[in-house]
Amino acid sequence: MTIQEIANRLVELCRKGDFETAHAELFADDCVSIEPDGAPVKEVRGKEGLAAKGKQFMEMMEPHSYEISDPVVADDYFSCSVMMDATFKPTGQRSQSSEIALYEVKNGKIVREEFFYIPNQG
């Protein structure tokens, strides 16, 4: 798959809420996921770590809406903006958030994802 095809497939799966398939199909075994300073988990490594982080996140929130933009591709990278409206179960607080997600692709797999947002903006 080309980087554009990988980017399009990730967006397609995320729009369906099928994050597990996205991780299994598109990410390298030794991928890295980076969150900004102040996030509960700063970095995880590997598909298993990515899956555990995703499961924990989904267990903590009740999503109301989720939007992801079409991808923008440049060299070995692509990015998307993400908007989410969710209630966080531990606090019952509902919040809207937005972020930029940046992905790096090598050898036909996503090797790194990094999210840019302001944590705890409530």
Score class of each variant (00 low, 15 high):
Thr2Pro: 03
Glu113Phe: 01
Ser79Pro: 06
Glu59Met: 09
Leu102Gly: 06
Asp29Leu: 05
Ala74Thr: 10
Lys16Trp: 05
Phe116Leu: 15
Phe88Arg: 06
Gln96His: 15
Thr91Gly: 07
Pro90Ser: 11
His64Met: 09
Pro63Tyr: 13
Asp75Cys: 08
Val44Asn: 03
Ile118Val: 15
Arg94Asp: 05
Glu25Ala: 03
Ser81Cys: 12
Arg15Lys: 12
Ile34Ala: 02
Ala24Lys: 15
Gly92Arg: 07
Lys42Ala: 15
Gly108Phe: 00
Phe19Tyr: 13
Val41Pro: 07
Glu35Pro: 03
Met60Trp: 08
Glu114Gln: 11
Tyr77Val: 14
Gln93Ser: 09
Lys53Thr: 04
Phe78Gln: 04
His23Val: 12
Ala28Met: 04
Gly108Asp: 00
Pro63Asn: 12
Thr87Gly: 05
Asp30Val: 05
Arg9Gln: 03
Met61Asn: 13
Ser81Ala: 11
His64Ser: 13
Ile6Leu: 00
Pro119His: 06
Ile110Asp: 04
Asp37Ala: 14
His64Thr: 12
Cys14Glu: 15
Ala74Glu: 14
Lys109Cys: 03
Glu99Met: 12
Leu26Cys: 02
Glu62Arg: 10
Leu26Asp: 01
Arg45Thr: 09
Asp76His: 13
Asp29Phe: 00
Phe115Glu: 03
Arg112Pro: 01
Ile118Thr: 11
Asp76Ile: 05
Arg94Cys: 06
Arg9Trp: 01
Asn120Gln: 14
Ser65Arg: 14
Arg45Ser: 13
Thr87Arg: 07
Ser65Lys: 13
Lys47Gln: 05
Phe78Thr: 01
Gly49Met: 07
Ala52Phe: 07
Ser79Phe: 12
Lys16Phe: 06
Thr2Ala: 12
Glu114Lys: 09
Glu48Gly: 03
Ser33Cys: 10
Asp37Tyr: 10
Met83Gly: 09
Ile34Asn: 02
Leu13Trp: 03
Asp85Arg: 07
Ala101Ile: 02
Glu35Arg: 15
Arg94Ala: 07
Gln93Arg: 09
Thr2Phe: 05
Met58Gly: 12
Val72Lys: 09
Lys42Trp: 10
Asp18Leu: 00
Ala22Ile: 01
Glu35Met: 12
Phe116Thr: 07
Phe115Thr: 04
Val82Asp: 05
Cys80His: 05
Glu104Asp: 07
Pro63Ile: 13
Ala7Gln: 00
Tyr66Arg: 14
Lys106Cys: 03
Tyr77Ser: 10
Val105Thr: 02
Asp30Tyr: 10
Lys55Asn: 11
Asp70Thr: 12
Gln93Ile: 09
Lys109Arg: 07
Met60Ser: 14
Glu43Tyr: 05
Phe57Arg: 13
Ala28Asp: 08
Val111Ala: 02
Lys55Tyr: 06
